[in-house]
Nucleic acid binder design. Structure first.
Length: 663
RNA sequence: GCCGGUGUAGCUCAGUUGGCAGAGCAGACGAUUUGUAAUCGUCAGGUCGUGGGUUCAAUUCCCACCGCCGGCUCCA
């Protein structure tokens, strides 16, 4: 009988007996590889190590230290989690247990409506370790839909997943759970535990063990708020205990740069209990940063051909009826105020009011594109559970603009907007951008299909021209038009959605906006909504986290602190400070009432860009000792004029430091 | 809004199986005068998130509410 020939990743081929398993294949290459293997791929398709080699396939061995290998570890660990919960809570129903970034979760419904508490995590982990010690195999089986339904007769969620296939729903979703058009696949671990799953899995539970259960949470079945809430357990799993520890360490590091923590430590802002949930106050040090951000924004907008407008915080309900927001977002708006001549709402967005400015008089095509810009403060009633520091609050300020242009101008306007956005964000130290194109939500939109297609095409074309990498998110658009969202990557690799450019044919129509064209006829303008920071509060929070509080010199609340070695250097220290202050530098003097080291430490903890130490030598020579943030060692005897010139340049040119991953 | 956790001094946290509430840092005052990440001492600082209830007695036990934290849902 002829053997099977497979290709290796290096391009070579190798022949095997028919029936050779992927594990045997790995062993033939080396015992170390076989030991490290968690799964294999046949022509790129992940499979169990027990699978037999198909003739002609390209075969790779998946080890636990690769991204795919970790996914498999995590998925298998999730199965063990489910088995442990079913052992500890007999009669529990289990739902889905997918892999997520850096970990996994599994959703359950416990008998009698019981909820998990944090204390349960230890019990579950102990049971999981017992299952791992039992070294149960993961044995794959294929079943028909009918068999699957019978197998999971007492598991309503599993049945629902299997039934969804029959109904042709959510194919992508359920495929990962092991249900497909032609049947279902399951993994058998022990007589007491079989799970619906596409696989692949590690050969046995003994191959697992480096995991941690993180937390419990409630989560709606199938992500639907109207359906029942299940009990979710989150966990993480890695190839070694060291890798688990490193992961936990990374989480701790990320926590150190949490803007809410740094906001207290650096005295930037707070959320006074007495003020109410989701409402922030900016302290002087946060306030100056915000002012600098706003000043820079205004400067760039002025240069970019924008005109500045100001609108009130309240608006008549009729306005939001006209715009359509009340219809779609009433629940997200602050409750109305009844006043003698009508009903008023705190504005949740600025666009309808900008439309009123446009409509205040007749417009000519010569005025277009008309770019109205405002740092507009809006109020949204965010649900209590969604509030999150400055990232998600109930009152915030948008760097908002509405651009009214002709159809002919649309394409160019979008293109130059993309350039403008990235240019401004770059000044704050963000250099890696990606984009998303959101298209019409078929269940939530206004306007004709034709107009949506036109707008979507314009955005797509602009993105293609820009060279920005982007993905298309079907159905993610706002109700009034498609949009481009721009994401940035921060110092520790997280991505944040910042800017948005939204194309809107609907507001102009609803507000009856017109311009007189060169043909002396009336035409309808197109409107672009756009924000670069999105919300100033949120952008500030992202900046703080990106820099771990060590903001670039041009944005630092205090840029320089001068320390005299002894009190008799105080006069010179004041002189140095006064000179810098005269050039607009934010500087203070910390007198020698305390030892130098204590004052240096304090300034370091406050993350100042520069500490100047001045002593006898400096007084004599007109120099300063420069202790630069992030610098290796301080520099002695720098001529004051040199330091001043270099600092001035750093500030004027808005030089941004390389953000460091270690907070 | 839903699930879990949590709330003690400005900050970080001890503590009380129900019996007058503690530390470090920060703050004030005094001493110290210091060349690159913590000088010493003294003092002050709290209705133990809020409101009810049980009790001779509640920061502690029970109930409700509020805030915050982690998720879910939502995010114009």
């Amino acid at each position: 009988m002829a053997g099977v020939t497979v290709r290796l990743p290096d391009g070579s081929t190798k022949e095997f007996e028919p029936g050779t398993s992927a594990l045997q294949f790995a062993q033939s290459i080396g015992p170390r590889l076989a030991k490290a293997a968690v799964a294999a791929t046949f022509d790129g398709e992940p499979v169990d190590l027990s699978r037999t080699l198909p003739d002609g396939a390209e075969v790779t061995v998946v080890t636990a230290t690769t991204p795919l290998g970790r996914e498999i570890l995590r998925h298998s660990t999730a199965h063990v989690l489910a088995q442990a919960v079913l052992r500890l809570w007999p009669g529990a129903h289990f739902a889905i247990g997918p892999v997520i970034e850096d970990g996994f979760y599994y959703d359950f419904e416990l008998p009698g409506g019981v909820h998990f508490t944090d204390d349960d995590l230890d019990r579950i982990a102990t049971e999981m370790r017992a299952i791992m010690a039992e070294d149960q195999p993961f044995v794959r089986h294929e079943h028909s839909i009918a068999e699957g339904l019978e197998l999971f007769g007492d598991q309503p969620f599993k049945r629902e997943i299997i039934e969804a296939v029959g109904a042709g729903q959510d194919e992508v979703d359920v495929a990962a759970e092991g249900a497909g058009e032609h049947g279902v696949s399951t993994y058998w671990n022990s007589p007491a535990f079989t799970d619906l799953c596409r696989g692949p899995h590690v050969p046995s539970t003994g191959a697992l063990g480096h995991f941690a259960l993180m937390r419990v949470a409630g989560a709606y079945w199938r992500g639907d708020e109207k359906r029942q809430q299940l009990q979710r357990v989150y966990g993480t799993a890695w190839e070694t205990d060291e890798a688990v520890a490193e992961h936990l360490h990374r989480l701790a590091e990320a926590e150190k740069r949490d803007h809410r923590k740094l906001g207290v430590e650096l005295d930037l802002f707070s959320f006074p209990h007495e003020l109410g949930g989701g409402l922030a106050v900016w302290h002087p040090k946060g306030g100056i940063v915000r002012k600098l951000m706003e000043d820079y924004s205004r400067e760039r907008h002025a240069a970019g051909g924008y005109e500045f407008v100001v609108t009130p915080h309240l608006a008549n309900a009729n306005l939001f009826e006209t715009s359509g927001h009340l219809g779609f977002y009433k629940d997200g708006m602050y409750p109305p105020m009844e006043m003698d001549n009508g009903t008023y709402y705190p504005k949740p967005m600025n666009c309808p009011i900008h439309c009123l400015i446009y409509a205040s008089r007749q417009r000519s095509y010569r005025e277009l594109p008309l770019r109205l810009f405002e740092l507009g403060t809006v109020y949204r009633y965010e649900r209590a559970g969604t509030l999150h520091g400055l990232m998600r609050i109930r009152g915030f300020t948008q760097d908002d603009s509405h651009i009214y242009c002709t159809e002919d101008q649309l394409q160019e306007e979008i293109g130059s907007l993309l350039d403008f956005v990235m240019s401004v964000l770059t000044a704050f130290g963000f250099t890696e951008f990606t984009a998303n194109l959101s298209t019409k939500d078929p269940d939530k939109y206004v306007g004709s299909d034709e107009i949506w297609d036109k707008a979507t095409d314009a955005l797509r074309l602009a993105l293609d021209h820009s060279g920005l990498p982007y993905e298309t998110k079907e159905g993610d658009a706002a109700f009034y038009g498609p949009k481009i969202d721009i994401d940035v990557r921060d110092a520790i690799g997280r991505t944040w959605q910042l800017s948005t450019i939204q194309c809107d044919f609907n507001h102009p129509e609803r507000f009856g906006l017109e311009y007189v064209g060169a043909d002396n006829a009336r035409h309808r303008p197109i409107m672009l909504h756009r924000a670069l920071f999105g919300s100033i509060e949120r952008f500030f929070a992202i900046l703080v986290e990106h820099y771990a509080g060590a903001l670039p010199a041009w944005l630092s609340p205090e840029q320089v602190r001068v320390l005299g070695v002894r009190n008799d250097h105080q006069g010179y220290a004041e002189e140095v400070a006064a000179g810098l202050r005269g050039r607009g530098v934010r500087v203070s003097v910390d007198p020698a009432d305390e030892p130098l080291n204590a004052r240096i430490r304090r300034a370091k903890l406050e993350k100042l860009p520069y500490i100047l130490v001045v002593g006898d030598d400096d007084v004599a020579a007109g120099t300063v000792g420069v202790n630069r943030r992030g610098g290796e060692r301080p520099e002695r005897g720098v001529p004051l004029v040199d330091f001043t010139a270099a600092l001035q340049r750093e500030i004027d040119e808005r030089i941004v430091p390389e953000p460091v991953a270690d907070a």
